[in-house]
């Protein structure tokens, strides 16, 4: 998920266009992260040194690591460490950007450094986010919210992010948007949670995204908003909320939930925390409020 967040940061800073980012995220999964990219990311080599090793590689049939050791730039132990880092997710984006000639490693590293500074992330937090720690990432998404909001919603949002990745789409991007930015979706799927920590939960979706979520969750191609499509999306919300109830129960808070419901072209209002959920096939909104009484549909 880090790639999506960092990618959006690059987009907001105008370091990439939307098209370029989409292209990089598309090929990200198929790239092979090269040792040179990791070495620069780790600060073990400069871009110039990597270039020099690449030039040598054109002349002799040797691996990157072997040449770097021969040149005295890396030790054997360092090469082994770099190989062990080859599967780090944020580096796939770096490699994709380098392969597409959209950025060089030095620019990527500088942007990573700026990102960390912009969000006041400690080394540990940054490392956790880079390694895919969802809780730290959700805290980071809620950075501009007050402590009360964080307290109310962070457990729900962390689980939601994990369940989206587990069941629907592993390239999601969540962002808390302005209350005024609540769009009128074509469908609203909702479920109420009651007990000591009541919560109203809803997905506000356009039709194409509803079909995407339904198709992935039902594991079949659904092209029309029929009973199965509506049921699949509702069942995903129900499954996610059920797991949330289990987690809360394990932490000592017992909750219950009503059956999930779906309404077409509903205008929904309430004192929501609106969360924009970008998937690979479009965007929908997750609407949450602990003030269940404020909701009208």
């Amino acid at each position: 998920m880090f790639s999506q967040y960092f990618g959006h940061y690059l987009l907001n800073r105008s370091l990439l266009t939307h098209e370029e980012l989409t292209k990089a995220l598309d090929i990200e999964k198929s790239v092979h992260v090269k040792l040179g990219v990791i070495a620069v990311d780790k600060g073990l080599l400069t871009s110039a040194q990597v270039e020099e090793v690449h030039e040598k590689q054109k002349q002799v049939d040797k691996r990157f690591g072997e040449i770097a050791v021969e040149l005295g730039y890396l030790t054997v132990a360092q090469v082994e460490e770099l190989i062990s880092h080859q599967k780090q997710s944020h580096l796939y984006l770096a490699q994709a950007l380098v392969d597409l000639n959209l950025m060089n490693m030095e620019q990527f590293s500088a942007a990573l450094h700026d990102y960390k500074k912009a969000y006041s992330l400690s080394d540990d937090q940054f490392e956790n986010i880079r390694n895919g720690d969802v809780e730290t990432l959700i805290d980071h998404i809620l950075i501009h919210q007050d402590a009360e909001i964080k307290d109310k919603y962070s457990a729900y949002l962390s689980l939601f992010a994990k369940n989206m990745v587990r069941f629907i789409d592993n390239q999601i991007y969540l962002e808390v948007v302005d209350e005024k930015a609540i769009e009128q979706g074509q469908w609203v799927v909702y479920q109420k949670i009651a007990g000591d920590a009541p919560l109203f939960t809803a997905f506000n979706l356009p039709e194409d995204v509803l079909l995407h979520v339904a198709s992935v969750y039902a594991e079949e191609d659904i092209t029309q908003v029929d009973e199965l499509a509506k049921d699949a999306v509702s069942e995903f919300l129900n499954l996610h909320n059920g797991i949330y109830l289990v987690n809360m129960s394990n932490w000592g808070t017992e909750l219950t939930m009503s059956p999930q419901q779906i309404a077409p072209a509903a205008h929904i209002s309430g004192d929501f925390l609106p969360v924009q959920v970008e998937t690979t096939k479009g965007t929908f909104q997750l609407l949450l409020t602990t003030d269940v009484q404020s909701v009208t549909i």
Binding site: N238, H240, N241, G242, I243, L245, V246, M248, E254, T256
Partner: peptide, 8 residues
Amino acid sequence: ASSAGTSN
């Protein structure tokens, strides 16, 4: 069979 297998 439920997603909400709380202890209660």
